[in-house]
Design a protein around this nucleic acid. Structure first.
Length: 771
DNA sequence: CTGCACATGTTTTTT
DNA sequence: ACATGTGCAG
């Protein structure tokens, strides 16, 4: 045993090892990028088991299935097969598994349906329609976000209604009926025997809180060790549940959370780094141990130092100093392109060059962008250059319409109360049940407080619609009778045929139509795999081992990726920065570094929004091991129009000494082009607005300047000794000028910011001469 | 009830 | 650009 111990403990540095060995009591691990976070987490679990804990006493929560899978694989390499018995999975899948067991205690069936965001939105639309509210004022996405945020902050409809502040906010937004929508939304979901993604958390909290039959103690005692990955991405509700499980009289409080505040990029959906700060305070009285993993094993020094510089521009941070001993390495390459298309071409060129000169494989390379829509140009050039690539993101398999349609039949067969599934397929394929009939059903159901399914049997209709409804009802009953058959594939295949779905798809012979048919067949193949395999895609949520269509839909409800496993090919990776979190590549291209794109126009007018964009940029650049290339374009097609954007402010936040400016494409006269362009901008602004047209916008970083009146001066005007204005650093004094002729660099002292002395490349800086 | 023409609104994303 | 949603004629 001590042998095994030494093998893995010896692979750790001092801090990592201490974090692994501190198995008892509360532990916070602050883990910088590339600092061996996953290694610590998995070895820690292995260590806990080595020291005698049973695998099923360990609860390890992650955010993605992928992270959970990776963790399980790595643990099993250390402790062997018993790793299967560990409760390791995503928050949602683990909680769903518990709820399948306990749901009846809080008034839900154990075969409850899980509503995805689309279903959720659809329920909200139905509620709005029922209440005769306009979707312009009550934008379904806003309503959904509002309800989600209420649940994430543990505010049920009754409390929401009484909350003065929330009501005030809603009144201000001209949405006074929000509380009523919330109430009806919750009622509808419950009536449908459905939980949305937030419910999987919220209802578990409710269960533990109300504690029927001592269920709370049961789980408190079961989970002797709790670990949470990516803690900076948890919301208030998730942290509350974790506390419910860990904090009680006599608890050893064996909880370990791992996270990096600098990599929190999901605040937009309710995550809060406050949890990290709270955690420290909450467990201080119980001897919390804090470990900071600061050595970056991934990237060379230019990259790590640039990342450090960028992140110092954010306000609140947990103090830490990330360092690397991998040597300086290559400087960061910066490419300016005239158009988005040129950006694509130059990246493809650079990729070819890197493959030749540095012997990189395609799989060593990634192109990261802020929005998925940017992938198109890169696709175009990579294809033209014959470089294999793969685009990640976009619509997942299970979100495709045709797949969801067939799944809706499955869902309805398992749980006929599932109103969203019913709405989806009641008239698809066409069976003469139009909107007006559906509305009547819905209205009747609402009046009688029954489900639409029950309404079909009770609604007094005498017309053609009644007959159609009868046929539909018979069809679904037939399907329902088969859901617990031991051969789920046979059932699935039967449903696909009898529903008419396959025939309808076969009639469509367009390219897209054939693709849809293929997807439906792929889903059926998936069911077949499920029928034949012993495990359940490694997914929680199924009871026992019986393979039925019911257990199938439960096993896939929380899956998003279908083909993630077969991406072993040698291809360049194209994905959004969000999707790249946790990954690393030898060479990384971060593209589209322009104002209004990265940072996104949606986030750039609040300080919190900008800070999150900056963390996103931080995540992007820290994905690179050896080569980092940053690019931007003067113009690009966006929303079908040509847009002209300035270089991103984030580029100025990196000290020029870490950067190399790539020689421009059409070398001749390029630098004069830059100057004349900047000159145009400034002269366009005219002398009128030069002086004093800036104010302190309260929602921007301290000294910030109103971008609307800010007019950058041409770079040739900047001289030592001048007083200048910077978009985010405020007023500063130019101390000196140096650098190459075509790339002058100014040292400027900005008195209003924390690190006042900055070196700024005039090429990208937007500076307005004050005097 | 169905199908087509026009209008609208665009981040990021896991579950 | 493009996908999704609404309104109206058949």
């Amino acid at each position: 045993m001590s042998n095994a111990k030494s093998t893995y403990l010896d692979e750790l540095n001092k801090v990592q090892r201490a974090a692994v060995e501190a198995t008892d009591g509360p532990v916070l691990v602050v883990a910088g990028p590339g600092s061996g976070k996953t290694r610590v987490l998995t070895y820690r679990i292995a260590h806990i088991i080595e020291k005698g804990a049973k695998p099923w006493e360990v609860l390890a929560l992650t955010f993605t299935n992928k992270a959970a899978r990776e963790m399980k694989e790595r643990i099993s390499k250390v402790v062997g097969n018993s790793a299967d018995r560990i409760w390791a999975g995503t928050f949602h899948s683990i909680f769903a598994r518990i709820l399948r067991q306990e749901a009846p205690k809080i008034g839900y069936p154990s075969n409850f349906t899980i509503y995805d965001s689309e279903d959720t939105k659809s329920v909200i639309k139905a509620v709005l329609k029922e209440m005769n509210l306009s979707t312009d004022v009550y934008n379904p996405n806003s309503v959904r976000a509002r309800i989600s945020s209420a649940k994430s902050n543990l505010i049920p409809p009754a409390l929401y209604e009484k909350d003065k502040e929330l009501r005030e906010q809603d009144n201000m937004a001209k949405r006074p009926y929000m509380h009523e929508i919330y109430k009806r939304y919750v009622a509808r979901c419950k009536r449908s025997g459905a939980m949305d993604f937030d419910d999987l958390l919220y209802r578990l909290y409710e269960l533990l809180h109300r504690n029927p039959d001592g269920v709370r103690e049961k789980y408190q005692q079961r989970f002797k060790y709790v670990l949470v990955d990516e803690f900076q991405d948890t919301n208030h509700l998730q942290y509350s549940i974790v506390k419910k499980l860990v904090v009680y009289d006599g608890s050893p409080r064996n909880i370990c959370v791992v996270g990096d505040d600098a990599q929190s990029i999901y605040a937009f959906r309710g995550a809060t780094i406050q949890n990290m700060l709270d955690f420290e305070n909450d467990f201080k009285p119980h001897g919390i141990q804090v470990f900071k993993l600061e050595q970056n094993y991934r990237s060379t020094e230019h990259i790590v130092q640039a990342a450090n510089q960028v992140i110092t521009n954010n306000r609140r941070q947990i103090q830490k100093e990330i360092w690397s001993n991998k040597g300086g390495g290559q400087r960061i390459k910066l490419i300016r392109a005239r158009t988005d298309s040129e950006e694509g071409k130059r990246i493809a060129d650079t990729i070819l060059e890197q493959k030749n000169r540095n012997h990189l494989a395609n799989s060593d390379i990634a192109i990261l962008y802020r929005t998925n829509a940017q992938s198109r140009v890169f696709e175009e050039y990579l294809r033209r250059y014959n470089i294999a690539y793969k685009i990640y993101g976009g619509l997942s398999f299970y979100q495709r319409k045709e797949v969801k349609d067939l799944l809706a039949y499955f869902r309805l067969a398992v749980n006929p109360k599932d109103e969203e599934a019913l709405r989806r397929v009641i008239n698809y394929p066409k069976r003469a049940i139009g909107p007006s009939t559906v509305d009547k059903l819905s209205e009747f159901a609402g009046q009688q407080d029954i489900t639409m399914w029950e309404a079909i049997a009770q609604l007094p209709l005498t017309n053609r619609a009644a007959a159609s409804l009868q046929t539909f009802s018979t069809l679904i009953k037939d399907f329902s009778s088969k859901v617990n058959d031991p051969d789920p594939y046979a059932t699935a295949d039967y449903i696909a045929r009898r529903s008419g779905l396959l025939d309808t798809l076969r009639k469509d012979t367009t390219v897209e139509g054939i693709g849809r048919l293929e997807n439906v067949n792929a889903l059926l193949d998936g069911v077949k795999n499920f029928s034949e395999s012993d495990d359940t895609f490694g997914q929680e949520g199924t009871e026992g081992d019986e393979k039925t269509l019911a257990s199938y839909i439960q096993s896939i409800a929380l899956l998003t990726d279908f083909d993630e496993k077969n991406d072993n090919g040698d291809h360049v990776t194209l994905m959004s920065v969000h999707a790249a979190k946790g990954l690393e590549f030898s060479s990384v291209f971060v593209v589209g570094l322009e104002e209004k794109l990265f940072p996104s126009f949606m986030s750039m007018d609040t300080i919190d929004g900008l800070d999150e964009e900056r963390r996103l940029f931080y995540v992007a650049i820290t994905r690179a091991e050896s080569f980092l290339t940053l690019t931007y374009a003067d113009s690009r097609y966006q929303y079908g129009q040509m847009r002209y954007n300035q270089a991103s402010r984030f580029l100025e936040e990196i000290d020029p000494k870490h950067m190399d400016i790539a020689s421009p494409l059409g070398t001749k006269g390029n630098s004069t082009r830059i100057e004349s362009r900047m000159g145009d901008d400034a002269s366009g602004a005219g002398g009128a607005s030069v002086k004093g047209h800036f104010k302190k916008a309260a929602n921007l970083r301290g000294p910030a300047v109103d971008p609307k009146t800010f007019r950058p001066s041409p770079m040739s005007e900047i001289q030592a000794g001048m007083k200048v204005l910077h978009l985010s650093f405020g007023e500063g004094k130019v101390l000196s000028l140096d650098g190459a002729k075509d790339n002058p660099v100014a040292t400027i002292f900005f008195q209003q910011i924390d690190n006042p002395q900055r070196r700024i490349m005039l090429k990208f800086a937007k500076l307005q001469v004050v005097e």
